[in-house]
Design a protein around this nucleic acid. Sequence first.
DNA 1: TATTGTTATACTCTATAACTATA
DNA 2: TATAGTTATAGAGTATAACAATA
Lengths: 144, 144
Amino acid sequence: MRSTPALPPQLAGRLGVAVTRLARRMRSQRRSDALSSTQLAALHSLYRLGALTPRELAVCERVQPPTVTRITAALEDLGLLSRHSHPNDRRQMILQLTPAGTALVAAADSASEQWLCGQLAMLSDGERASLAEAIPIMNRIANS
Amino acid sequence: MRSTPALPPQLAGRLGVAVTRLARRMRSQRRSDALSSTQLAALHSLYRLGALTPRELAVCERVQPPTVTRITAALEDLGLLSRHSHPNDRRQMILQLTPAGTALVAAADSASEQWLCGQLAMLSDGERASLAEAIPIMNRIANS
DNA sequence: TATTGTTATACTCTATAACTATA
DNA sequence: TATAGTTATAGAGTATAACAATA
């Protein structure tokens, strides 16, 4: 006997496969000079939440601190975010989008998002609405 | 001027971030002895489509042939799939789930799916329905 | 000569462990 | 002593290039 909920049938398996495939496709779609999915996700968090410390960004993205170091170093090199010392605690840093970083997020102006925009444009309004409904639910699961 | 469709606003960005985060979370949730997302996706394809050659599986999963070699070697070691020579063309192999592999897929009996099942159990019926609606749309985008 | 699959190799992403600076 | 961030290192996962066997 198994006590899984299982309405609709196989939902976990199908969701896992769909997310895996779409994530892989987005990554492969990315041009070599473009931002990675994780870099893009970090920019989105900073766009949504404003300035954060590396630690806060790590919690928010559910990655470890060294990963944040790498991601933010690359984004700083690209001029998309700035790193300042915390005024009261010199151990901490403050990460913040530059105008260029803000513009990039606001315009969905990255290679993988351009591709995704094109795909979404070919869907019906109803299909786009279905995706829009699913997004916060997926985020909730990812953050739980 | 930009000619993106953009209903609902920022949909591409939000979808990309949600998929990235959920894929990462599922991967980190996985126990060290468990199957990877890609291995699981391969099992699901063989479950759905029956026997395939490595080439066919590569096309279906949108990965390159060497990746299929690695994935299937691991799954064969675990006794989840079998590899036979093609009867007419000795260059080709036939990949097919074993009874153990079939049972694993049918039962969603893997660590990451167990975790995902638990998360899905905490959602409302309406939320599960929203996810179920979004899954085929994500698959369509991933395969386009 | 073209195709299937494998082996060799390299790159990206992410983690853990060890280190430095500050509190 | 505890905490923030970085550096060093290792392990997945996947790709491209080169190779072997077969058509």
